[in-house]
Amino acid sequence: MNRKLIIEGNAVYEIDEECMLKKRLDEEKLKEDESKNSHQDKRKEAE
């Protein structure tokens, strides 16, 4: 697992890069699906 430590003053953050990548890809897929659905709805309204 890839993990990254970020130290800011007294705060320490541990970032799981694989988790962040999966989350970003899931969000992008959701946006694509919403975009496709929006285009299909507009086509139905035009008919």
Rank of each mutant, 00 (worst) to 15 (best):
residue 13 Y to H: 11
residue 13 Y to G: 02
residue 14 E to T: 13
residue 14 E to H: 02
residue 14 E to W: 06
residue 15 I to C: 02
residue 15 I to H: 00
residue 15 I to E: 00
residue 16 D to F: 00
residue 17 E to L: 15
residue 17 E to S: 11
residue 17 E to P: 00
residue 17 E to H: 05
residue 18 E to V: 08
residue 18 E to F: 03
residue 18 E to I: 03
residue 18 E to G: 12
residue 19 C to L: 08
residue 19 C to N: 12
residue 19 C to P: 01
residue 20 M to D: 08
residue 21 L to C: 05
residue 21 L to Y: 04
residue 22 K to Y: 06
residue 23 K to L: 01
residue 23 K to C: 06
residue 23 K to R: 12
residue 24 R to F: 01
residue 24 R to Q: 12
residue 25 L to D: 06
residue 25 L to G: 04
residue 26 D to H: 06
residue 26 D to Q: 09
residue 27 E to C: 00
residue 27 E to M: 01
residue 27 E to D: 10
residue 27 E to P: 00
residue 28 E to G: 02
residue 28 E to M: 10
residue 28 E to N: 07
residue 28 E to K: 10
residue 29 K to M: 09
residue 30 L to Q: 13
residue 31 K to R: 15
residue 31 K to Y: 13
residue 32 E to R: 11
residue 32 E to S: 04
residue 33 D to N: 08
residue 33 D to S: 07
residue 33 D to V: 06
residue 34 E to A: 08
residue 35 S to P: 02
residue 35 S to D: 14
residue 35 S to I: 06
residue 36 K to E: 11
residue 39 H to C: 03
residue 39 H to D: 10
residue 39 H to Q: 08
residue 40 Q to W: 14
residue 40 Q to I: 15
residue 41 D to L: 10
residue 41 D to E: 13
residue 42 K to R: 14
residue 42 K to I: 13
